[in-house]
Amino acid sequence: MKLDPSFIWTAFVQILSAIPTTLYITVVSVLIGFVIGVAVALIRIYRIPLLYPLAVGYVTFIRGTPMLTHLLLIYFGLPVLIDGLAAQFGWSFRSVSIPMIGFAYISFSITAGAYMSEVVRSGLLAVDRGQLEAAHSIGMTTPQALRRIVFPQALAASLPNLSNSVIGMLHGSTLAFTVSVVDINAKAQIVASTNWKFFEAYLAAALIFWGLTFLIERATSVIEKRINLYNRGGVA
């Protein structure tokens, strides 16, 4: 087995076809995770009774255990749960009809939700309390004030953390190979083992991930510049 530089390019081109799967997993888990995160963050900030300990437990559990265990628990646990409920209530739905990538979506969304909730929470807490009070004083209701005043500022404050979370989920999506979803990593494995050129294939995969991460970082810095326009300070 000798190093074959030209194969890196061959592998690169073949692995490119798996990029959409990786991006789908990342985008879906980040979006659903963001929604979960906002809900959990609001529950924690407003200390809503009953839900509050649940939210804290959820965040602690998810952040204290590896992403892989979430995926495996969902992969093995969810079908049992669904089939059990289906048998109980006579549904026609069976867990077999869930596609493999569905497990990845569900599990990664749950994972992303816990991390996102911390990001959203720190963003919300970074907004000065006076902003909310000023909004109240001109007659806005709390939902209005949150939506129009607090959230935009919180978003700007949490953008760097948000981008880190997206990158984290992008990298975490490599775990999808354990439930036989063909993402970039799984594709690299396939290309590697069919050609018996492991190093070259993984090098190509690493380059693709490096590029994607770089793009996310660039995009963030562009958005950050735009979104912080109001915050320039100085005169004019």
């Binding site: 087995m1 000798k2 190093l3 990158i167 992008l170 990298h171 975490g172 490599t174 775990l175 990593n185 690299a188 494995q189 590697a192 492991f198 190093f199 993984y202 090098l203 995969a205 690493a206 991930f209 490096w210 991460t213 770089f214």
Partner: peptide, 20 residues
């Protein structure tokens, strides 16, 4: 590089690449 690529890819990369 190490922050821009997943740890899983890095593991395989080192495992297969370093000996070569």
């Amino acid at each position: 590089f190490f922050r821009g690529t997943p740890i899983l890819i890095q593991l395989f990369l080192f495992y297969y690449g370093l000996p070569e």
